[in-house]
Structures are given as C-alpha cells and as structure tokens.
Design a protein around this nucleic acid. Structure first.
Lengths: 193, 193
DNA sequence: CTCTTTCTGTACCAATCGGTATGTAATGAT
DNA sequence: ATCATTACATACCGATTGGTACAGAAAGAG
C-alpha cells in the first residue's frame, strides 16, 4: 500500500525487552529504547503507541516466551522431581542464558508497576497463575505415575513452589552466596514429599 | 552554634520513607520528597546529601525498624509454629498496618536497585541474612524445647522460609486471591515438619 | 549589640523527560 | 509516470528532572 517498515518489529521488541529488563520501566528512557532498538523516536510511537504500550507489548511477548521456555524444560525432564529441580536451577543460573541478576521481567513488574496500575497487577497475577497451573499439572502427573505421594495437595504445593520461585528470583538479584541458595532450594523441594 | 534546624530529621526521614515505599526510588522526585517531608529543597540536600544518600538513610532506618518489629512479633508468639504463622500472616496483611501491596521496602530495593548498585546489593543481602538468622534461632529454640523435630536443618529451613516470605511479599503486590495465598502459606509452613 | 554561622525560601541552572510537528524519501496502486 | 500513503529523520515542544546560587532571617557566642 505504501512505504514498508525498514525495521523488524519483533527484533525491535526484543531489543526493547532487553532495555526494560535491565533497567526497569521508569529508568528506561525513550532515548535508551530507540538507540537499542535501532529506530528513530517517531517510529517507536508509530509502531507501538508510546512507552507504556511498548512495555505492555514487551511484557506480553516475554510472558509467552518465558512460559513456553519453562514448559519445555519441565516436560523434557526425566521425572517430576528432576523437573522441579531443573526449574529452580534455571532461576539460580539465569534462565535463557541471560545475566542471572536481571531476574524475571514479570516479577520485576509485579514489584515496580503492579501496585500502581491494575493492568499490570492483572497481567502479572495471570502469569503467576499460569505458572502455578503448569506446576500443578506436573505434580498431578507425578502422583498418577506413583512418583509422588497421593497425599499431596497439588494445587497448594504448586502455589507454594511458585511463591518460593519468585522469592528466589528476587534473592538472586542481590548476588547471594551460591551454596546458601542451593541448600534452600533443596529444602523447598522437600514440599514434594 | 548557629541557627538550629526547624524540622525534625527523624520525622522527615519517616516521610521520605513513605514516598520511596509507595513509588520506588526512580519514580520518587525531589519535589515529591520535599513536599511530603514538609521541607525546602536545599534543606534536603543540606541535611541528607542528595537523593541517593537520603534513600540510603531511609533504607537503613527501615531495615532497623522492620527487623525490630518482626523480632518482637516472633518472640511474643506462644510457639515456634505460631510465630512463623504470624510472620507470614503479617506479610499477607501488610506489616506495620500499612497498605499491603507496598510490600517490603528492602525487597523492593532488591528488585529495583540491587542489580545496578553494589551498595544496595550488599545492604539487602545483609538484611535477608539477618532475617534468616532470626528465623534460624527461633527454629533452634523449637528443636531445643521439643516442639520441632531434631531432624530439621535449621539453617536450610530458615533460608527456605525467608525466600518464600520474599516471594509472598512480591506476590501480594499483584493483589492475589486471599484464599490462594493462605493455602500456600500453610503448605510452606510444612517445612517445619 | 554585633558578628558569625547556619538555616530557610526563592529563583534558577543545564539536562533530560515523554511526546510531536514537519518536511522529505520511499513505496505500491493506478 | 503520477499520486496517495506511509515511514524516516531532524528538530522541536513544554514540563520536569536532580541539583545550586544567593539573599534574607534566625539564633548562639562574644
């Protein structure tokens, strides 16, 4: 119809994600974003609407990728126990191969934006809910196959594990001693017994 | 020696704490701070040095108050199990009677500032360590009195509980369904068994 | 009372903030 | 080839950012 975009929106979104992930929402300026996205300022507004809308797009993209990534890792584990171990270990080492102390973008958003904006409260709550359901399903599988005790309450355990995982993600941002968190994770995983 | 301060530094610090607690560090402007502190801009710089130094003072004050508050609550409980229950319940309801979704200022700082500033990484790590030691001592008491099993690893359990408490504090900021977190806390507290 | 010291309040600083108006270049449709 | 449409790039907008210079006011020291 007319002149086409010279940049790839997905690629620009990925670059914006890095900026927001590293600096948080407030500390990321439009100039930070455009320079890392490799686009001009008006292009950002034309393609995404504004800073907040861009962040919403980034967060949606992140949540989708993150959930898919975690689900893949969990499903490829040999047992439920190992799946959970792998999940927590991923948090310690920085899932996605990125810098560990960036944490999870959704967790960061819960802290920075959820209290001030119902949109982000709803979104991050939903993300946490989906993660919980993923773990709950995995636990139920474990009970079905006999790996886990049928006395477990899959929903409650899953919720407890996700809350712990969020706490671990936050804890990692302060660069704690590695052995301390490893021991703590081992302890947390006894919830499966 | 000369003209004395017309405002109370402790009171001004408490007001600044409210601002940082509600809005986070980056989103708090000097104007936000001075208006809530009831002082003029140059007075802030004269008394505290600058925004970052003011925040450091606020954080130190908060950590001291928070640790004392938590220790008091835990020590006044009738049993170790109830002490832990009270501790987690305080996170759910918003310790100190404040708005629950403000969370813990130290946790918020871990997320917002620890990755970018070693000062805050060190400070929040130390805060978490002190909390852990407090819980560890309480657990050891419980083992000594026979309330808790001597098979427990007090240090590991304490670390696991604090990580979960941090996760709970973050979770509350997204205003989750109350019953969900209550069940999760009950599950988390089974780490004491 | 005078002097020195330190506080308060106004007014200001350059820099940056998020967001846009505008002119030009590039494209597809006709 | 022309034209309508859209993207790009520069340059700009008022508002706000963290931080200060400076003048006047208040208080203790002598």
């Amino acid at each position: 119809m007319a002149r086409p975009r010279e940049f790839d929106e997905q690629q620009a979104l990925a670059a914006a994600m890095q900026v927001f992930w590293e600096k948080g929402y407030e500390a990321s300026s439009i100039s930070d974003l455009t320079s890392r996205m490799g686009i001009q300022r008006p292009s950002l507004y034309a393609a995404f609407g504004g800073k907040k809308e861009l962040f919403e797009a980034v967060l949606g993209s992140y949540a989708g990728m993150s959930l898919a990534f975690i689900e893949r890792r969990i499903r490829s584990a040999a047992s439920v126990r190992e799946a959970m171990r792998v999940y927590f270990q991923g948090i310690i080492e920085g899932a996605g191969g990125s810098n560990p102390d960036l944490g999870c973008l959704c967790v960061n958003t819960m802290v920075e934006l959820a209290p001030h904006d119902v949109i982000f409260a709803q979104f991050t709550r939903d993300y946490q809910l989906k993660l919980t359901e993923l773990l709950q399903g995995t636990i139920e599988d474990g009970i079905r196959t006999g790996e886990l005790s049928s006395a477990l309450n899959p929903a409650a355990v899953a919720r407890a594990l996700i809350i712990s995982a969020i706490g671990l993600s936050v804890t990692m941002k302060a660069r704690p001693d590695r052995s301390l968190v490893e021991n703590a994770v081992t302890e947390i995983l006894t919830l499966l017994e």
